[in-house]
Structure formats: C-alpha cells, structure tokens
C-alpha cells in the first residue's frame, strides 16, 4: 500500500478525468457519470470508515448520523438562513466533530458488538431527531430547493462540473488518508487494531487514537453529507437512516476493509449495483442484490481489493489460493 498508492493515484486520476468522455462515447453508459458522483460522495465516508474499521479496528453503525448532520447543516444553513454554502459546510463539519468527540469518548470504551449497538443507538436517535424536529428539518418530507455550490465564481450545477469537483475532493482525501496511515498516527492505529494491550505497553494512548480515528471519519461523513445536498438539492431523514449506516459497512466490507482502494471500490460497486446494474430485475432486484453480496463474501472475503491477489493465486496454482 505504500509506494504503489502514489502511482495508483495518478492512474486513478487519469482514468477519472477521461471517464465522462468515455461514458459519452460508449453506448449505454450515458448515466454513469451521474451515478459516479454519488459513488464519489459515498467514497468520502467509506475512506473515513476504512481508517476507523480497517486500521483502528473499531466499528460504527451510526455514520449515517454524521452524514445527516453535515447534510442538514448545509441544507438548513443555506435554504433557511441564506448563509454561504462553504461556511455551512465548515459549520457542519465542526458540529460533527463536536458530536463525534462527545459520543466517541464514552462510546469507544466499548468493544465489539457493544460498540456496534451503541453507535447504532446513536444513529437511530439522531434519525428520530431529524424526523421529529419539523420546524427545523421539515420532518419526514425533508427540505427541498437547496441551492447548489459555486467555486471561484463558477457554478457547479452540471453533472460534468460536479463529477470533477467531487472526485477531486475524493482524490485529495485519499491522498490525505494514505499519508496519515503511513505516519506515526497511522502506525499507532494499526497497533491498536493488532493488539490493544501490546499497543498500550508500547506507550500508545489507545483511547485517544480511537477517538481521533472516529472524529476523522465523522468529519469526512459530514463533508460527504454537505456535498450530497448541494448536488441533489434535497434532504430527508430516511436518506440518513439506519439502513444507510449498514450500507456503508457493506461497502467497506465488499471493497475490503484493509485498504483505502477497497473503500472506493466498495462504494462504487454498491452504488452501481443498487442504482444501475440490478434495475433490470425489477421485483427480483432485492433478492439478486442479497445473493451478489453473499457470493462476494464467500469468494472474496478480503473484498474486491483482495481480487488481484486471488487472481494471482488462481493463475499460479489452478485453484483458489489461501491468502491470509
């Protein structure tokens, strides 16, 4: 993951730059850039979650809440109070940071399934607040007519411009996370994941590192929420419900929890599966979706990021290799 990431990042950037043009030429791909915008927005959250889950070894079933906090901060700030969208984005991120600190400090003392339930509970509580505080959030019908973003006087209101904008942010965040994971903090995260006792013995302050990872992922989710509302111009509570939290976890597991590449791959895979590829099955869609997930878990327990090694194993030995 170390050296490759820089070269890989360049290839990814080039591929993304060419993508919308490619999609225009190849028949049937016309709606792909549109879908890729959402995939990019979800990638922001999954990269944060990947740091939290794959590297720091914690779990969260409540990240939809942070997505929602960012989304509603931007929505309410711009649509109701006519504030500057960038200011709202930062306010939302700050709010998420504070909430993540307040929730993270007591919650991350919990372990395993207890942590999963506590974050799940947090997520549901925030959802109910979004749903019930009708005067602020618009209730279940949500808030609509949220203005778009503009950057240096340029309006980001077309699919193309927003595609490039979102994926530039994704690449920047990728670069930031990759560097972070190579730094001292990143090594500490991995030590916490490996063995908390050993990490503690080496003088790593484990609880503060867990909270750091949690706060980072919360802020990224909030950022994603802000970018989401400024594109779709709408937000309602069920966009950030419990199932979205679970979907985010599905994304990182399908992509591979131990790699930032996996986070992006998982987000892209799940976004396309549930928005494009399985549409042809109509009523059977849910069933096929479940089956596809199951098949990936069974055959690629390391997620899509583990695929290259799998292929090497198959090519080398003519039968599935044991990559552990």
């Amino acid at each position: 993951m170390k050296k490759i990431s820089r070269k890989g990042l360049l290839i990814l950037a080039a591929g993304l730059a060419a993508f919308p043009w490619l999609a225009k030429v190849v028949p049937g791909l016309g709606s792909y850039p549109e879908v890729m915008i959402y995939a990019g927005i979800y990638s922001l959250i999954t990269m944060g979650l990947s740091v939290l889950v794959g590297f720091a070894g914690q779990i969260s079933l409540g990240h939809a809440a942070f997505f929602g906090i960012g989304a509603y901060a931007s929505a309410v700030g711009t649509a109701t109070y006519n504030l500057d969208p960038w200011l709202c984005l930062i306010l939302g991120a700050l709010l998420s940071l504070l909430v993540a600190l307040a929730i993270g400090v007591p919650t991350l003392k919990l372990k395993g399934h207890y942590l999963a339930m506590a974050t799940l509970a947090f997520g549901i509580i925030v959802f109910i607040i979004f749903n019930e505080e009708v005067d602020i959030t618009g209730g279940p019908d949500g808030l609509s007519r949220i203005p778009g973003l503009s950057l240096f006087g340029l309006k980001l209101n077309t699919t193309m411009s927003y595609f490039y904008f979102v994926w530039t942010v994704v690449l920047l965040v990728f670069w930031f996370c990759a560097n972070l994971l190579e730094s001292r903090i990143g090594r500490a995260f991995r030590a916490v994941h490996g063995s908390e006792v050993a990490a503690m013995a080496m003088g790593i302050n484990i609880s503060s590192h867990k909270v750091q990872a949690f706060v980072l992922s919360a802020v990224l989710a909030s950022l994603a929420g802000s970018l989401y509302v400024h594109y779709i111009n709408f937000i309602n509570p069920s966009t950030c419900n419990l199932f979205f939290s679970v979907k985010l976890i599905i994304m990182i597991v399908m992509g591979g929890t131990h790699s930032l590449w996996g986070a992006i791959l998982g987000a892209v895979l799940i976004t396309f599966l549930s928005n494009v590829w399985l549409h042809a099955f109509q009523e059977w869609e849910v069933l096929i979706y479940g089956a596809v997930l199951l098949i990936i878990v069974i055959f690629l327990p390391d997620g899509l990021a583990g695929l290259p090694e799998k292929i090497k194993g198959w090519a080398g030995r003519g039968q599935p290799g044991k990559a552990s």
Binding site: I250, W284, L293, I298
Partner: peptide, 28 residues
C-alpha cells in the same frame, strides 16, 4: 459454512446479505 477465512466481520456480513435475500424472497 461456505465462507472461507471466516472472521467475525465476514460472517456478520454473510448474515446481513442473507437477511436481504430472505426479505426479497418473502416479498416475492
């Protein structure tokens, strides 16, 4: 049982996938 290298995370994911599958089947 078919899951290779069963870790708690992959097995839980298998149950989540199965729950989606069962719900879809029940709907049909």
């Amino acid at each position: 049982r078919p899951v290779r290298q069963p870790t708690v995370m992959t097995l839980i994911m298998a149950t989540i996938a199965a729950s989606i599958l069962l719900k879809g089947a029940a709907m049909l």
